[in-house]
Write a protein that binds this DNA or RNA. Structure first.
Lengths: 191, 191, 191, 191
DNA sequence: GATGAATGAGCGTTCATTCAT
DNA sequence: CATGAATGAACGCTCATTCAT
């Protein structure tokens, strides 16, 4: 197994176990076992568990954003752009349930809150498309005049909730439903 | 201290500590200390920590629902009823941040998922108002024709997200904003 | 076993193992085993290993000083007083080899250096007899005019070395030798 | 880098790190890094860490003794010879604090005790000057009639103690003080 | 021969749970 | 009943040593 493969295996095992059982349900020893490496090996790639967790998150963001941005066209109408991004995100979650659950675990934890705080207060970037779109929409009076934070909450809140319901098997989303959900989200924020 | 008082103290202490520090940041010994009872005493009232956690949740629901229902009038128009319930709930979260944070901790945990599954699949309810309202709205073609689960997600998703943002200090909600948020939620589900 | 007995057992086991094998040769688990208590029990009495180590040291000082002071008379000549304290200390070490070796381990460690620094710089007390005696001796021109620290080194250095040699079995000290050694120490510092 | 150079680098790195941080504060990996060799390379030169530690000690002795012997003249009076050796040793410690601290680490450890036992019981020497001097002094009734071991203790005890105090910064030794200290040591053992 | 990634036993410490008092 | 001291399994992490390259 190459060095890169080993890191990959650790990342995969950590993602799976943390997504499924949470941070506390995924001891380092268990991650090591699932990755088929020694317990100490993880520490060659990640200084400690906290750093493993946050680095996993960063990996995830880097992997997610390009997928969502794909096919995004700035010259399309705002509504269309919102639908594009929204369905893209929801679809990504549904197609990558592990990623989704990992994100949930992360956001619902001290790491996540801190990360969120940094992002909101420090203008730390990652995916500026939604922000730009909201700001444009508000200034052009197409979107309700809410603070940015609330527009995020109004858009992502239902999106995340529906993704969770699908992944937990409470409902089965198909392309039609996905579109209708995102359209409903749009109805929520549009003027 | 009476038997009931003791239980009450344990519940209060557990709620506070878990809401603030999470399940893993609230050891039984610490809960006992804050409740001013012996560590072993908790086990007279709750078989183990898991059961304490789920009973706490049930207590919370029992406490919450009546508050939200207050002033709820079935003969009012659907939109008005939705606004009433929604603002009630959001206001409750904001006024009882500890309760809110406990609910979040609970939902984002194996307990929460199981509980949710039971609730949705087993139809065992605590608060049927929203369900009734949605069903009526759908059948009267006022609300979008989504499965019930999704209507919940579309309504509660943003509601919970905004409550979280407020409690974490990312935004400050006043009565005006609260109303506008719930109206936006309504826009999301109304036909 | 009473609570006090348990603490006593832990202290005894820790002393023995650390004296014999050093701090790193005496894992908490081994101390617990020798004390016939659970590993976690130690932490009820000592916050952590560092605190166990320093508290053991303090216990030792509290136990030692009175023994050495016994029969100490301020109105005797300086030489006689020095011999009294010196032989008392050397005898104590020989009769309590565990204590001696623990002290050695302690002094030869970050804890010990810090403790020593505090004592010297901060005038932290414990046993002022030697200091008083040295100061009196210097001012009365009976003892060589060295800084206090050096008088300590000149007196305790040989004392500790001979105690170590005895305890390690390189020599066997009897009352006669003990007296002659302390007299030699006196010859070293007297004018 | 030649084979000899590599060994040299390892020895230097190990000495520095162990002297400064103790045996347990100097992991093999850190030693390797400071020596700019691979971690495994150390094991080509030293079977294991214990052997590295004892060989380091032997290296040190081989380096020290010639320095101290320098200028030593057997035809000088005993007192003068003692002063020569003593000041030489004390000066060496002060000028090579790393060496001194390594020696201290070594002597205060299972290795040191074993080594000392071998040396004293097995008569295997490295520096016979002190021994010869003591034996001559005792037989010529110039030095107190103590067993050799105790004469060592009476001479080296204060010497080492004062060196330690200097190195830890509790006192600053200059040439004058050094001489006076060794003279005091002489006073301790002379008849 | 030299390397340094991999290993896993062993460390200090925590905490849900038990049970003698 | 209530207690809280005692427990020991389990945690995150370190590091001496090995061995494939």
């Amino acid at each position: 197994m190459s060095k890169q493969d080993k890191r990959e295996e650790i990342v995969r095992a950590a993602m799976e176990l943390i997504a499924e059982h949470g941070f506390h349900g995924a001891p380092m020893a268990m991650i090591a076992e699932h990755a088929k490496v020694g317990a100490g090996t993880i520490y060659r790639y990640f200084e400690n568990k906290d750093i493993l967790i946050t680095e996993l998150y960063r990996d995830l963001e880097e992997k997610m954003f390009p997928v969502i941005r794909e096919g995004y066209e700035l010259n399309k109408p705002i509504r269309e752009r919102f639908i594009h991004l929204g369905t893209g995100l929801l679809r990504y979650f549904i197609e990558n349930p592990l990623d989704f659950r990992y994100l949930e675990q992360f956001h619902n934890s001290p790491y996540g809150v801190e990360h969120r705080r940094d992002k909101i207060l420090g203008e730390k970037e990652g995916c500026h498309e939604f922000r730009d779109l909201f700001e444009e929409g508000v200034s052009r009076q197409i979107i309700k005049d809410f603070p940015l934070v609330l527009l995020f909450a109004l858009s992502f809140g239902p999106l995340v909730s529906t993704a969770r319901d699908h992944i937990l098997g409470f409902v089965t989303l198909d392309d039609d439903l996905i579109t209708r959900i995102i359209e409903a989200c749009w109805d929520g924020i549009k003027k």
